[in-house]
Simulated assay, not measured.
Amino acid sequence: MRLGWRTRIGYGSGDYALNLFWQGTGYYLFFFYTDVIGLPVATAGVIFAIGGLWDAISDSLMGYWAERTKSRHGTYRPYLLYGCLPLALSFIAIFYPYPIENDLLLIIVVTLALLVFRSAYTLVSIPYAALSVRLSQDSDERTRLATVRIVFGFLGGITAIILAGGLQDQLSDRLAFPIFATLCACLSVPILLFCFHNSHETAANTPSTPAVYSLGQLVKSMRRNAAFLLLCCGIILVTLGGALIGKTVLYIFVYDLGDRAAGNLTILLMTIIPILTIPLWSLLALRFGKKIGWLAGSATAFIGMIFLYADRSGSVLMAMLGYGVIAAGLSSFAVLFWSMLPDTIEFGDLRSGVRMNRRWWG
Rank of each mutant, 00 (worst) to 15 (best):
W22G: 11
I107G: 00
S60D: 00
A334E: 04
A129M: 09
L53K: 00
F347G: 04
T202H: 05
I273K: 10
A227N: 12
L317S: 08
L135N: 05
G297K: 03
I236A: 12
I326T: 13
P97E: 02
L39R: 02
D349G: 06
D169E: 13
Y251V: 14
L317V: 09
F253P: 15
P342M: 00
V46G: 03
A88G: 13
T239V: 10
D343Q: 11
G4K: 11
R6D: 03
V110A: 14
L18W: 09
D59A: 05
F32S: 07
R118L: 08
Q170Y: 09
V151L: 14
L89F: 12
V109P: 09
I235C: 05
Q137V: 03
V151C: 14
A160C: 14
G74E: 13
V41K: 14
F154I: 02
Y27L: 15
V189W: 06
I9M: 03
V148W: 05
L105A: 04
V46K: 04
L284V: 11
W361P: 00
S315I: 05
R68P: 01
F154Q: 07
W5A: 12
A327K: 13
F30Y: 15
R287K: 14
L350P: 01
Y16T: 01
R118P: 04
G12S: 05
G258Y: 11
K247M: 14
K291T: 11
G348T: 00
V249H: 09
G83D: 01
G324E: 13
L80S: 00
L61K: 08
A296C: 12
I47D: 11
Q137I: 00
L20T: 10
G165N: 02
L80N: 01
I158L: 12
P86W: 10
S119I: 08
R77D: 09
I236N: 06
S132V: 07
